[in-house]
Computed example of a mutant assay.
Amino acid sequence: MTIVHQQTVQMKQVSHGNFLMRNVLKHNVVFNEGTRGDAAYILTEGKIEISGIIEGHKKVFAILKPISIFGEMALFLDDNSRTATAIALEDSKVIVVTKDDLEEYMRDSPKVISSIITVLVSRLKSTTKKAMKVPSTGMGVVRILDLFASNGTMTLRYDTAIKSMADTFVTTTDRIEQYIHGLAGQGLLAVGRDEHDGRIITLLERNLVHEVMKRKD
C-alpha cells in the first residue's frame, strides 16, 4: 500500500494576484474527507482521484483530468466538511479558488466566472450519489442562485436549473423545487414562462444570500 503524505504547499500568484497555483506531487493529498475546506480547485495539469470511505472500504468516485473543478461544494455550503478525499495520481497543478477569490474575480471577469459557475452547477455528482451526504441544501441552493444573480444572470431555465442543482446536491428534483417555490413565496424569485412557453426562474434580488439571512433574523 502506498503511504500518502500531505505535501508542503508551494504556491505562486496567478491571474489578478488573488488566485494561487498549487503544485501537488504524485500520491500527495489535496484534501481529506472529513476535514474543513474553504476553497475549490481547478485542475490544470495532471490527474486527481476523488474517493471516499464507504462501509469501511475505499470507493473511487472519479478520476479527473484537466480541466476539471473539484471540491466546489465548499463554496456553497455552510458546513464546509469535505465529503471526499482528493489525491494526485501524478504530478499535478491546481488553481485554488476561495470564496473571496470567486466574488472578487466575478466582479472583474464575469464571462470567465459564468463558465466556472456553469461547471459547478452541472458537476459530475451523479457518480457519487450513494456516498455523498450534503448538508444545508437549502442554503446551497440560495448560494448558487446568488452567484448567478451577482454575475448578472437573473433568468434561468426552470427544468435545467432544477435538475442541475438536484445532481449537484445529490437529492431529488422535488426537494429542489420545494426550496425554489419557498423562495418564490418570500418574493425573492418568480417562477413563470418565457415567450416560447418554457418554464423559467426569474431572480428578483441581486444579493439573495443577504436577503435570506436578513429574513431569518
Rank of each mutant, 00 (worst) to 15 (best):
M1D: 12
T2A: 03
V4E: 06
V4N: 05
H5S: 15
Q6C: 07
V14Q: 03
V14C: 03
S15L: 11
F19V: 06
F19W: 06
L20K: 12
L20Y: 09
M21C: 10
R22E: 10
V24F: 02
L25N: 12
K26R: 13
V29W: 07
V30P: 02
R36M: 06
G37M: 06
A40E: 02
I42M: 12
G46F: 11
G46L: 11
K47F: 04
E49A: 09
S51P: 05
I53G: 02
I53S: 08
I54P: 01
E55W: 00
E55Q: 09
K59E: 12
V60D: 05
I63N: 07
I63H: 05
K65R: 15
P66M: 15
I67C: 04
I67D: 03
F70C: 11
G71T: 06
M73G: 01
A74M: 02
L75T: 06
F76G: 01
D78V: 15
D79Y: 00
N80E: 02
S81Q: 11
T83H: 10
T83F: 13
T85Q: 01
T85D: 01
I87M: 11
A88Y: 03
K93M: 15
K93C: 15
I95D: 00
I95T: 09
V97R: 01
T98H: 00
M106E: 05
S109M: 08
K111E: 15
K111P: 02
V112K: 12
I113D: 01
I113W: 01
S114Q: 12
S115G: 09
S115W: 14
I116V: 14
I116S: 02
I116P: 01
I117Q: 01
V119G: 03
S122W: 14
K125W: 12
S126L: 04
T128A: 14
M132H: 12
M132C: 12
S136Y: 12
S136H: 15
T137C: 05
R143Y: 08
I144Q: 04
D146Q: 10
D146K: 10
D146P: 06
A149E: 06
A149C: 10
S150G: 14
S150W: 00
N151S: 13
G152D: 07
G152S: 06
M154E: 11
R157Y: 10
T160F: 14
T160L: 14
T160A: 14
A161R: 08
A161F: 09
M165E: 08
A166V: 04
A166D: 09
A166I: 05
D167Q: 10
T168S: 10
V170I: 10
T171S: 10
D174T: 11
R175E: 06
R175D: 01
I176Q: 07
E177P: 11
E177S: 15
E177L: 08
Y179M: 08
I180D: 08
G182A: 10
G182K: 13
G185N: 10
G187I: 15
V191T: 11
R193G: 04
D194L: 09
E195D: 10
H196D: 05
H196Y: 07
D197C: 03
G198K: 11
G198W: 05
G198F: 08
R199P: 00
I201E: 06
T202A: 13
L203C: 05
E205P: 07
E205K: 15
R206V: 09
K214C: 07
K214A: 14
R215E: 04
K216Y: 13
